[in-house]
């Protein structure tokens, strides 16, 4: 399989959209224009873009506390996302969810999740429903390395394999659970070593290489869609910013050299350089894409700024489901 230029440009666009959204959100948070916590996805773009680029619009994903990137990669609307982060009534959750509950069920994005590990069982539920309905949809659970120490992950993996469900477990192994290195919290290095214990194949890919992630995702999604059952992709990746925000609490739990080393492997610039070498795109073309998407971000910020906050009479609206509107 060699990817067409259109697919390459699509993956690139998804990554640039994530990068620009997150950089803008970071700037707004640093200037106290966004309430609450903000976990930025900068550096990990190749994972969401590579996986979501392999999905159909009606496939489902569940996300994490670091969830903006997943929604952007699934096609999320900048205006509604930025409004949600600002707590405005025009946001995806009418301003009541914020960063860690952002979702768009019309895109199959079943929600970011403030509880570590909580997204995986939801994805298993979606996968079960998808098979029950027989529409050929696939579910993807995005989760971090740290969440595989949580019971919910193990229950989800076990049930998915026992029921042979159409699901892909997409692990974003960024080597840290909040501020704690992975090797302080688990005796294994590769999350993929856990896959065999449940009876599913697991593979490691370079999470800084969107092509590598996409190749693996295409295979895993096809396997799930064709009845082959669950699989686990472990993408080795890295977040360029801190656990939350840009500067976080100023804690030095990673060396400057380590951060700099990973930044040299920036997934977006790596793809751009390779595509230019391959004569699949030009620098001018990429500059135009960045400029176009920057304008979209500016529009989204203006939209969110100008949007109203939810009024007190809306406090109970959209909080509980009627159980009739599931996609």
């Amino acid at each position: 399989m060699d990817l067409s230029v259109d697919v390459q440009l699509d993956l690139h666009r998804r990554m640039v959209r994530i990068r620009l959204f997150e950089e803008a959100a970071g700037r707004l948070a640093e200037s106290n224009r966004l309430p609450g916590f903000l976990h930025l996805y900068v550096g990990e773009e190749a994972v969401a873009a590579g996986v979501c680029g392999a999905l159909n619009d009606d496939d489902h994903i569940t996300s994490t506390h670091r969830g903006h990137g997943h929604l952007v990669a699934k096609g999320g609307d900048f205006n509604r996302m930025m409004a949600e982060l600002m707590g405005k009534a025009t946001g995806y959750c009418k301003g009541k969810g914020g960063s860690m509950h952002i979702s768009d069920t019309s895109l199959g994005m079943l929600g970011a999740n403030g509880i570590v590990g909580a997204g995986s069982p939801i994805a298993v539920g979606a996968a079960f429903a998808n098979r029950y309905r027989g529409r050929g949809q696939v579910a993807v659970a995005f989760f971090g390395d740290g969440s595989t120490n949580i019971g919910a992950f193990h229950e989800a993996a076990n049930m998915a394999c026992a029921l042979h469900l159409p699901i892909v477990f997409a692990c974003e192994n960024n080597e840290y659970g909040e501020f704690t290195p992975r090797d302080k919290t688990m005796a294994i290095t590769d999350i993929v070593d856990r896959a065999a214990g449940y009876g599913m194949p697991g593979v490691i890919v370079d999470g800084m290489d969107v092509i590598a992630v996409h190749e693996a995702a295409v295979e895993a999604v096809e396997r799930a869609r064709s009845g082959g059952g669950p699989s686990l992709i472990e993408a080795k990746t890295y977040r360029f910013y801190n656990h939350h925000g840009v500067q976080n609490l100023g804690l030095k739990y990673r060396s400057d050299d380590e951060v700099a080393m990973w930044k040299q492997r920036d997934p977006i610039f790596t793809l751009e350089d390779r595509m230019i070498e391959n004569k699949a795109a030009t620098r001018d073309q990429f500059d135009a894409i960045w400029a176009e998407l920057r304008a979209d971000i500016d529009t989204a910020i203006a939209f969110a700024d100008e949007s109203p906050y939810p009024t007190p009479d809306q406090i109970m609206v959209g909080v509980y489901t009627s159980m009739t509107g599931a996609q």
Binding site: I188, D190, D193, A216, E219
Partner: peptide, 21 residues
């Protein structure tokens, strides 16, 4: 080699997974 036996071929073929253990 810690990375041996864990690549994408486990998704598309019945290739063996070789764990760290």
């Amino acid at each position: 080699n810690p990375n041996a036996g864990k690549d994408i071929r486990r998704l598309v073929t019945p290739a063996t997974h070789t764990s760290d253990v």
